[in-house]
């Protein structure tokens, strides 16, 4: 989409606009796209580092591959926690972001102003700073009607990650609603729909398609940000890898193990990225 816009703006930089025959190939964003080849390159790097490590390793020690195999269940357990955190964060962030995004297009000026401020604040704050705030400002347990509800670090971390997701999704909602042509609103208005009906029956159903690719993109970004929570001591993949390395105490394992974790992220995020691209293409042709 941004590529198409760039394409169009070429005419506006001083050159006279010329009507050229429409070509789907030119209009499609031609920027760098994730290809299966990138995955092969990553995997090749992993293999290379492992082999280099094997060669350099002292003969008395167990091989790197055997060590990696040994720790794989533990590492996967940690990685599964990354995925769990990403799931919960995207759910909370999406729900809160949807409300905030609708607030940004509210007819009420105060609601609009507050929603805009909250969105901009959390969208532009560094994720790590937000994470630290949540970890240290939220108490580790709540007292509710005499019942003590524990609030473990990983839940606080989830909230910390949900905040930027919320703000980004709020912008996705606002952008999608504003991308619906005015004609749709006018047609609905002239058919005596109320504003609320227009939004829920006519505008938002059309927005879902437009919001899906950026939302999935946001999810991939979020997943890749989940290792941040290792800094506050949550036992996810990054933490697990650190623990493995501490247990093994071998410097030749350092790069292969972090590479291994990187590959896990790639294997998980790559299909999402491909799917996002195919959805973008599909919708770009239809609209």
């Amino acid at each position: 989409m941004s590529g198409a816009r760039k394409h169009r703006s070429v005419g506006g930089t001083g050159n006279l606009a010329v009507l050229k025959p429409f070509s789907l190939h030119n209009a499609a964003p031609s920027a760098w796209r994730l290809q299966p080849g990138h995955g092969y390159m990553l995997f090749a790097a992993l293999v290379l580092f492992v082999l280099v490590g094997e060669v350099q390793a002292a003969p008395a020690r167990p091989s790197i591959i055997a060590t990696m195999w040994k720790w794989t269940p533990f590492l996967l357990q940690g990685f599964a926690f990354n995925i769990l955190i990403s799931f919960v964060s995207i759910i909370i962030g999406t729900m809160a972001g949807a409300a905030l995004g609708l607030g940004q297009i509210s007819v009420s000026r105060p609601i609009r102003a507050v929603s805009w401020t909250v969105t901009q604040f959390f969208r532009n704050a560094p994720w790590l700073v937000l994470l630290f705030y949540c970890i240290f400002l939220i108490p580790f347990e709540f007292e509710l009607f005499g019942v003590t509800i524990p609030f473990p670090a990983w839940i606080k971390a989830v909230i910390g990650l949900s905040l930027p997701v919320m703000a980004n999704f709020s912008e996705i909602v606002r952008g999608a609603v504003q991308s619906i042509p005015d004609g749709q609103w006018e047609a609905a208005e002239s058919l005596a729909y109320t504003r609320r009906q227009t939004l829920w029956l006519i505008v938002l159903p059309q927005c879902i398609k437009r919001m899906l690719p950026p939302w999935m993109n946001l999810y991939a970004v979020l997943t890749m940000a989940t290792p941040l929570v290792s800094i506050v001591g949550v036992g996810e993949g990054m933490t697990t890898t650190g623990e493995i390395l501490a247990a093994e105490n071998r410097s030749d394992l350092l790069i292969p193990f972090y590479m291994y974790l990187l590959c896990l992220f790639f294997i998980y995020c790559y299909p999402i990225a491909r799917w996002t691209i195919s959805l973008e293409r599909k919708f770009a042709v239809k609209i």
Binding site: G183, A187, E189, S190, A192, I202, Q206
Partner: peptide
């Protein structure tokens, strides 16, 4: 406005049908 628009129909240059 809603009462007025129930009495007055309007058709636009760009049709403005709901595409979904």
């Amino acid at each position: 406005k809603l009462e007025l628009r129930k009495k007055v129909g309007m058709v636009f240059q760009q049709y403005n049908l709901f595409p979904h």
